[in-house]
Design a protein around this nucleic acid. Structure first.
Lengths: 260, 260
DNA sequence: CATATATGTGCCTTTTTATGCATGATTGGA
DNA sequence: TCCAATCATGCATAAAAAGGCACATATATG
């Protein structure tokens, strides 16, 4: 059990404001109520932060509990991909279930990047990953301890592969494994061209106490060639799918299904 | 670890401050209470240390008994946009000297990111790095074989640190080592707060046949505290500096100097 | 060898900071 | 128009930093 910290780590106003700035930069708009919940502070504190940032000329406030970026100068890669809103919702729902002090083993996918970005800034976490984009996202978290597992990087997944990474994972014991790349049918599946990754995924699942699966609607009922693990290996599934038949079957396998 | 505690208790303020700086560099954030317990001294002493470090401009303090460096992500993006065209020119000039089939060992810096982005798409390369941003840039190259060396990621450099990464480098033998983070005076230097990285850099230099140094004008003549290697260890220097005196001295050390 | 000085340290008190709650004002929409 | 939600302000409380003070140890000096 790595959850050694009980209390939420309190962020200083400066740190909070930096994170808020990032969020405003990414989302374009933030709500005081939501931020208050994320940071675990009262809305008053958030308003004070917003006022400070506004005084500094960094954000523009307007009624409605919101703020908008005033300097569009920092227009960095905002590659809005397919199903962005869908992935965002899934990631946020999964992130809400992570307790303080947890150790996470995260695979490579655009959905889990959303997940990482949605993790509450007030949580003290340890994030282990093979994916460069996940690592980059995790480094933006104010309290996360980030470990990157090395190896030759796959061009498609932008993540480490091969025996070295698998060995490193075998030596791990973590609280949560968070997967976003698998299809789900009778089991967790990967396409044949990813068979190299299949061993990695199953090692990740075995290293974890709980496995969270983040799957957009198109992943459900997708019978791909390689089965990584049975559905019962998954602790919780977060999905946007409304396919009641499949969801029912997955629930009956003992999986906690949450639709967003 | 009681043995450590005993040793730490005997530390002088200077030594303590060096360790604190290392921790801040790695974790991004430290708490006075925790440090007091670790070192076995009172919080007052820690506060005095933090005040000294703050006066020296090495850490940023904030209420909450904590200290940290500037916001990592924002800081990195800010650094990337600083002297952007200068770094771009340097990176392009260095990239032009790389032959087909070369194996590159690349450190973490905003300048080498430009270098990687400027590498000709027609070259068949092998790029090895400890930095997530360099890895991300290298993956955009159509032919490059990218290897990421793992480890715990430092927030400031966004790159792997520690014994694991150093061991991995020791086992390597590459054509080129490309550095962008060092200052240059009589030798290649690093600031005291990066002394953890100094071993990494010198291992990288030893692993390489040739060492390319990419230095913006402000790096020249900068006598930082830790010397990684003598100037003669560098094969070629690419710089925007016009300081003829220093450049002449470097040339006389046998370094091929190219100004852009 | 003894003593003076400096430095590091811990404890105490004062001041500053951060936060949450309560109250009143303002905004935007039904 | 009214109503609900959001925002600002004042105040109380708790936590933390700063400054003063005393004690210990080490170094230097006679």
């Amino acid at each position: 059990m790595t959850a050694d910290r009980k209390e939420l780590a309190a962020l200083s106003p400066e740190e909070r404001q930096a994170v808020i700035l990032e969020k405003v930069n990414a989302a374009g708009r933030v709500l005081a109520a939501g931020l208050a919940q994320e940071f675990g502070v009262s809305e008053d504190s958030i308003r004070r932060d917003l006022r400070d940032l506004s005084d500094a000329g960094l954000v523009q406030r307007f009624h409605g509990g919101a703020a908008r970026l005033v300097t569009p100068a920092l227009d960095f890669h905002r590659r809005e991909t397919l199903h962005a809103e869908e992935k965002q919702s899934i990631g946020r729902a999964a992130a809400a279930t992570i307790p303080d002090g947890a150790t996470l083993l995260v695979d490579s996918s655009t959905t889990v990047v959303r997940f990482v970005r949605s993790l509450s800034p007030a949580l003290s976490l340890r994030i282990i990953t093979t994916a460069v984009d996940v690592a980059a996202a995790a480094l933006d978290h104010p309290l996360a301890d980030v470990v990157m597992l090395g190896g030759r990087l796959g061009r498609l997944t932008r993540s480490a592969t091969g025996a070295g990474a698998i060995d490193a994972i075998r030596a791990l014991r973590v609280d949560y494994c968070v997967l976003g790349t698998c299809g789900v049918d009778h089991g967790l599946t990967l396409r044949a061209d990813d068979f190299e990754d299949a061993h990695l995924k199953s090692a990740m699942i075995r290293a974890a106490n709980k496995t969270l699966l983040l799957a957009t609607a198109d992943k459900l009922g997708q019978a791909a060639t390689y089965e990584v693990a049975p559905v019962s290996a998954v602790s919780a599934l977060f999905t946007s799918s409304r396919d009641t038949a499949i969801l029912k079957a997955i629930r009956e396998a003992g999986v906690d299904v949450e639709t967003v």
